[in-house]
Design a protein around this nucleic acid. Structure first.
Lengths: 171, 171
DNA sequence: TTATATATGTGATAACATAACATTTAGTCA
DNA sequence: TGACTAAATGTTATGTTATCACATATATAA
């Protein structure tokens, strides 16, 4: 299985995919990552940077092996740990997230901000959108507190149909 | 890798593990499953029933291959689809849940009730507790509504430390 | 009873992930 | 600078999770 698949449509906003804007958003995100890594004394090495760039470029959740294909094409190592380690670094530092339901990874849409992210996964077009709200897990945290469970990380994902696909289904 | 591993301690309630009570709770759950399947005209076949029994017996999240070991020992087929199909049936009908974070399955603690379950996973003792609250995902559903995303299923899981392990850590 | 749908068994393989260890690179400090 | 140390990378090998495809068997309906 190779890495070349059609890009998924964006979920959430039915905004058209525009190259110039997207290039700009990638640039902004990379700059933000640079700043963040400098502040925290983290090393955004070539593989890690490239991995983030690929996630941003694709703008969807991609699996570790698909990432590995891209990295190999870019001249990096071709064995699974190469991809997994870079992704692990990005996830650990809030620059990307793992979508457990898909066993795939996606660039964070607002790195730096402390957040327990929540995702909406379209089962029709496979797009994944990160929810904006910062307190999605609120009642869950309360419920955990009530029984004395110390939450360290949360996985909050919804599977369903995105607005664009809902429109298409109606048509 | 065989199936024999020490049982995880229960998370949530620090109630002792008592054979009689547990046997009773298994019996009750199986009866409930029978009733539910009769009502919905579902077939709780031998493999499916055994699979549910094993989940209830273990009282923790177990992987498909560990389940397969148990099923083989019980005289059923020994190839992965045997376990995956039975688990898929139970999950589809609300008798069990998949814990995405662990790639493992657990019996539902209150089948029949329509619910989008939420779980607390202890990273120290691996116990998994299903949260009682019925409206954990409330704010998430609101956030999805706001952007026009149609939720069909949710995955809500927290990883952290259960009350029992927190106690032990203090001691 | 025959037809049809559903469920099961099995072999093969795909997809996802990590352990272990050698090598290289970056940062530190005598 | 050069030796030391820690971190990162490359690679081999293997472990773990999940599905496809197809044959067979069983249940339900007509």
């Amino acid at each position: 299985m190779t890495s070349l698949q059609p890009k998924a449509k964006r979920g959430g906003n039915p905004v058209g995919f525009e190259t110039h804007d997207h290039a700009h958003c990638i640039g902004t995100a990379i700059s933000a990552a640079d700043t963040l890594c400098e502040q925290k004394a983290l090393r955004l090495t070539p593989v890690r940077r490239k991995t983030l760039e690929i996630l941003l470029q694709e703008h969807r959740a991609i699996g570790a092996y698909e990432m590995l294909d891209h990295l190999r094409e870019a001249g990096f190592g071709s064995q699974p740990p190469v991809a997994y380690r870079a992704l692990e670094f990005l996830v650990a530092n809030g620059l990307a997230h793992k979508i457990e339901r898909l066993n795939a990874f996606i660039a964070c849409t607002h790195p730096g901000a402390t957040h327990s992210p929540a995702f909406m996964i379209c089962r029709l077009c496979q797009s994944v959108a990160e929810a904006r709200s910062t307190h999605i897990g609120g009642s869950f945290i309360d419920a955990a507190d009530a029984v004395g469970f110390q939450i360290e990380q949360t996985v909050i994902e919804a599977e369903g149909v995105c607005p664009a696909c809902t429109q298409e289904a109606k048509a």
